[in-house]
Design a protein around this nucleic acid. Structure first.
Length: 494
RNA sequence: GGUCUCGUGGCCGAGCGGCUAGGCAGAGGUCUGCAAAACCUUUUACAGCGGUUCGAAUCCGCUCGAGACCUCCA
């Protein structure tokens, strides 16, 4: 397969032609959520970004194994020794088992993803389910001389590693700058160097989540799970590693170091990072507390929201920007996205109804124009998954589709091939690749009530043919009309 | 302080040296019993100042402004 797909690789800071390690197979690992809170817009952006990548790679014919983890252990509040585990803290607060917290928020995350029409990954491993793999990797790193044990904890020796590897390449850091800029945090006395990070941490007495290890009871460091699980399911080197830009340093940098220190090979060929959602120009994030959860968006229940926004509106909103640009949240922007999405949704609806008669005379100029409009639609996606450009081009194609629909243009002037190409290009790109499914926005009950009003009027006017007609509509849907002395209602046909 | 990114018309947002991005909003028109939709046309741009170039929103420099990472964050 000759690839025309270009991807921006954070490692090289360039767009590169995408060539998988062993085509047609593609391995992709994406950092998933830490399940101690509800998903917000930022989680949605990351998930949707890599959902598009997953879908488009599949569309191009690749066989993709997509691994997205659930972080349920080891993610501390901060780097200090007394930094609490995020899950553990929440569990204590709510008087729950840590795994209850994990299950609860995992379920909720899945529900939101389903609404957003984000496909499930091929494998969704959790950190707590891979403690053995993480211990093994830690042992390997110690064996290779890149980690040391202090009082029951194991730390990665960044200086030692950096002597023979370029630590900081991914995030563009220089080691000396990092040392100079690093803050003094408590409890770093165990480390030889402030940049060293934990592979395994000794559990303090009050720490709930703990496992046996060669170094005593403890728990794995945050960065380790991704290294262990990606290697387990995708091999020591795989094609794509993704995640939010904020994970670039230190998380992804540490992952590379761990992988090289244990497996002696760089983990991923391409590193892809999605940018942040901003709100009033500022990053939306947990620490700033300025995030809006997906449930709040769906229900409109948040002080910054003027109304509720449907999942597809949000998906469309996110896709209208390129994934490597920041995207600013506002009601106005979301409102515009809502209308834009509806326009696409109407396009999907009408193109399914369009039919074509092949016998008429053909218009070669029109045929050429339509073909060109169709071909162009792929350019955006092929250029580093630029959905903004593809959507713009789809709107241009949609203008023609609408013209055919309203008969302002005669569709029979197209040849069969072009007609099908137009239909397929629009439907496949919108529904399958961009994942813009039709939302069921109509409320059937209000239609039923409306029909019953007409039914009543027809009865009053003794227009019995109309009455019978309406009754048969109901019957076809498995419903019956109930004429009662005190009024009219409907019921399910028994 | 260090490293880096960005500043596009009323709003959002593409753009990677020459060719109308697109969506929303506004104006005019076609169609229409009315309305809506749709289609056509159209008004507001590239933070500022210099430079490179035949040509710059796009490259370089400076100034101003916003932000990200260097702790946890998608």
């Amino acid at each position: 397969m000759v690839s025309r797909l270009k991807v921006y690789n954070t490692l090289s800071r360039e767009k590169e032609i995408f060539t998988p390690i062993s085509s047609p197979y593609v391995g992709m690992y994406v950092c998933g959520p830490t399940v101690y809170g509800d998903a917000h817009l930022g989680h949605a952006r990351a998930a949707i970004t890599f959902d598009i990548i997953y879908r488009f790679l599949q569309h191009l014919g690749y066989k993709v194994r997509y691994v997205r983890n659930i972080t349920d252990v080891g993610h501390l509040e901060n780097d200090a020794d007394e930094g609490e585990d995020k899950i553990g803290k929440k569990a204590k607060l709510e008087k729950l088992e840590p795994m209850e917290v994990v299950q609860y928020f995992t379920n909720r995350y899945h529900r939101v993803m389903e609404k957003l029409n984000v496909k499930s990954p091929s494998i969704e491993p959790s950190a707590s389910g891979h403690i053995l793999e993480q211990i093994k990797m830690t042992e390997e790193i110690i064996k290779n001389g890149f980690a040391y044990v202090t009082r029951g904890s194991v730390y990665f020796d960044v200086n030692k590693y950096a002597a023979s590897n370029d630590y900081g390449k991914l995030s563009g850091r220089v080691l000396d700058d990092l040392v100079a800029g690093s803050r003094e945090l408590d409890g770093q006395k165990e480390k030889k160097n402030s940049l060293d990070f934990a592979l395994w941490k000794k559990a303090s007495p009050e720490h709930i989540m703990r496992w046996d290890s060669p170094w005593g009871e403890g728990f794995p460091g945050w960065h380790l799970e991704c290294s262990a699980m990606s290697a387990k399911y995708l091999g020591k080197t795989f094609d794509i590693h993704g995640g939010g830009m904020d994970l670039m340093f230190p998380h992804h940098e540490c992952e590379i170091a761990q992988a090289k220190a244990s497996n002696k090979t760089a983990p991923a060929k391409y590193w892809l990072h999605n940018n942040m959602i901003t709100i009033n120009g500022q990053k939306m994030g947990k620490s700033l507390g300025n995030f809006i959860t997906m449930d709040e968006l769906f229900s409109g229940k948040h002080e910054l929201l003027e109304r509720a926004y449907s999942p597809m509106t949000i998906r469309f909103f996110i896709l209208q920007a390129h994934y490597r640009s920041t995207l600013d949240f506002s009601n106005e922007a979301l409102l515009a996205a809502n209308k834009g999405y509806k326009k696409i949704a109407n396009g999907i609806k009408i193109i399914k109804q369009l039919t074509h008669n092949g016998t008429a005379e053909k218009d070669n100029k029109l045929i050429e124009e339509i073909n060109k409009l169709c071909d162009i639609c792929y350019n955006g996606l092929l250029d580093d998954f630029n959905t903004a450009i593809t959507i713009a081009d789809l709107f241009n194609l949609l203008k023609k589709i609408n013209s055919f629909y309203t008969r302002q243009l005669n569709i029979d002037l197209l040849d069969e091939e072009t007609f099908l190409k137009m239909k397929n290009t629009f439907l496949i790109l919108t529904e399958e690749v961009l994942g813009l499914s039709n939302e069921n926005i109509a409320r059937p009950e209000s239609f039923i009530d409306g029909l019953l009003l007409i039914y009543k009027a027809a009865k009053d006017n003794k227009e019995y043919d109309k009455v019978d007609q309406i009754r048969s509509f109901f019957k076809n849907e498995g419903l019956v009309i109930k004429d009662m002395k005190h009024g009219i209602d409907w019921a399910y046909e028994e």
